[in-house]
């Protein structure tokens, strides 16, 4: 039976093998693949009415908070983080000068880096700052070792005046846009 079945089978397979061709392939190229997506997300938003700032008083923090922030030092993220930018926007329509400080803290509470913003009273233009982390910018390890943010805002002016602008307030916006290496 084997003599009956296998010769024609082998003949046809041989035929296919003889007449089929394939260009040279290099499957090791997969190691050269670079997958580096850019991920964008808001980080922190602070909004304070002038009425609240006045109520707390001047030359004192009307807001101070340590926030646990593990977004960048998660192992998966930290190992793959290449570079990126944190964008800050500050809008002050109150009648007083303000100070905002954002400190990056490690797991022991040590300050790794700080961003200090002195904000002029209204009318002040929208303040915008982009801070680059990575080659040519701040050390990316600041982010990968950050496990908390200490955010504080204080009133450098008086505690009685009220801005003539409608709905006076302080707004702090922040967002990150970072590039990761997935492959």
């Amino acid at each position: 039976m084997r003599r009956l079945f296998f010769p024609p089978l082998l003949a046809v397979i041989a035929l296919f093998l003889i007449f089929s061709c394939a260009e040279k392939q290099d499957f090791n190229q997969f190691d050269d693949l670079e997958v580096t997506p850019t991920v964008a997300s808001s980080i922190f938003y602070l909004e304070s009415e002038e009425q609240h700032i006045n109520a707390v008083g001047n030359f004192t923090d009307f807001y101070s908070q340590i926030v646990n922030f593990e977004a960048f030092n998660e192992e998966f993220v930290a190992e793959r983080l290449l570079e990126g930018t944190i964008t800050y926007e500050i809008e002050n329509t109150t009648s007083k000068d303000l100070n905002i400080t954002i400190e990056f803290l490690d797991a022991e509470g040590n300050v790794l880096d700080a961003q200090v913003f002195d904000v002029d009273q209204a009318p002040a233009p929208l303040f915008s700052l982009e801070v680059f982390y990575g080659p040519g910018g701040k050390n990316i390890e600041i982010l990968t070792t950050t496990s908390g943010l200490r955010i504080s805002a204080s009133n450098l002016g008086d505690s009685a005046s009220v801005s003539s602008l409608p709905d006076p307030k302080l707004i702090l916006r922040s967002a990150a846009e970072f590039t990761f290496r997935l492959q």
Binding site: S42, L46, A55, I66, E70
Partner: peptide, 22 residues
């Protein structure tokens, strides 16, 4: 929907804590 950690003062004063991210 997410716009990051958001704090509105004075409304959020009772809710302020270290675990806003979590």
């Amino acid at each position: 929907n997410n716009e990051g950690i958001t704090v509105f003062l004075p409304e959020d004063i009772p809710d302020l804590n270290n675990n806003l991210w979590e």
